[in-house]
């Protein structure tokens, strides 16, 4: 039984190492923006509470095994069958712990609904930008409706700026997850959803689909590149000037189930903007082939 104890302690120690030391590889424990930070704070808070429970239970566990194990039968009482006070105690303690967890949980849930609070020192309010993210079998399309550009499998965002992500799916369901910036959200066909991300520092943040979507699923990773404001504007300008346009033909090709590399387009067919919902619905309907040609607007 001793081995069991040692092992459990070892696990605890290991976890502490992860918490304090080399956390840069442990993406979830390395939040780089206010959204992920809120989630991280909850994780740490719950971890502390859980560690207290583990410690309490293990102490009792080891004590009873050592004290009443093997041939040590002093204090043996086969009729000992209950103790109202003790039982009340270990009903109340979990209730308290649940309350201690539930309150910040609900607070955070409501907090995550809106844009993140400004994280930079000046505290000035920054105008959010919007990116429409569509999961397609098996790649990610990022569309900047205001800037009029589209990228595949990577996106560039300005630092310290709330980014509204509009999630959609064509084909199977996926999940948009950039652990260092924010927890995930599903992308659902015909069911647009929103989430927020924000990066505190320039950097390259790896994201991937977290929900199984078929053969190419494992390859559905992408990069979110956070840049300083000026660099972001320069990037947009560069894309506008130097990259090819996304034609309807090319777009249709992108929708075919296959994996893809990173791509950048200076524009996308405007028709996609206008009849977005209808188009998406259409793509999700049975006839993928040729369906794009005839107009499906209302």
């Amino acid at each position: 039984m001793k081995r069991l104890t040692l092992k459990s302690l070892g696990v605890l120690a290991l976890f502490l190492v992860f918490l304090t030391g080399c956390t840069n590889k442990v993406a979830v424990l390395n939040p780089q923006g206010p959204v992920a930070k809120q989630q991280y704070d909850l994780i740490i808070w719950s971890f502390i509470l859980m560690a207290i429970v583990v410690a309490g239970v293990l102490i009792i566990f080891i004590y009873v095994l050592v004290r009443y194990g093997r041939k040590n039968s002093k204090g043996y009482d086969p009729e000992d069958e209950g103790n109202a006070k003790l039982e009340a105690l270990w009903t109340i303690i979990p209730i308290i712990i649940v309350i201690l967890l539930a309150v910040p949980t609900v607070k955070t849930l409501y907090g995550l609904e809106g844009p993140p609070k400004p994280a930079n020192a000046t505290g000035k309010k920054v105008e959010p930008i919007t990116i429409e993210v569509t999961s397609v079998d098996w790649k990610w399309l990022f569309r900047y409706p205001k800037q009029g550009i589209e990228t595949v499998n990577y996106a560039v965002i300005p630092e310290d700026t709330p980014v509204k992500i509009k999630l959609k799916a064509i084909g199977a369901m996926n999940s948009f997850w950039v652990p260092e910036l924010a927890g995930q959200q599903y992308t659902m066909p015909n069911m647009p959803m929103n989430m927020w991300i924000q990066a505190d520092h320039p950097g390259d943040y790896l994201g991937r689909s977290a929900n199984f979507s078929g053969k190419g699923f494992a390859h559905m990773s992408f990069h979110i590149l956070a840049k300083k404001d000026a660099n972001f504007d320069a990037w947009v300008k560069d894309v506008k000037a130097n990259k090819p346009a996304l034609t309807m033909e090319k777009y249709k090709k992108l929708l075919e189930p296959d994996i893809a590399g990173e791509m950048t387009f200076s524009s996308y067919p405007k028709v996609l903007d206008k009849k977005d919902a209808a188009m998406e619905q259409h793509m999700n309907n049975d006839d993928m082939e040729g369906g794009m040609n005839h107009d499906s607007g209302h």
């Binding site: 967890l101 949980t105 927890g183 995930q184």
Partner: peptide
């Protein structure tokens, strides 16, 4: 820990 919905966004799947 998984029951904490905002934390679950990070653990899920």
């Amino acid at each position: 820990m998984l029951a904490i919905a905002p934390a679950d966004y990070q653990y899920h799947n």
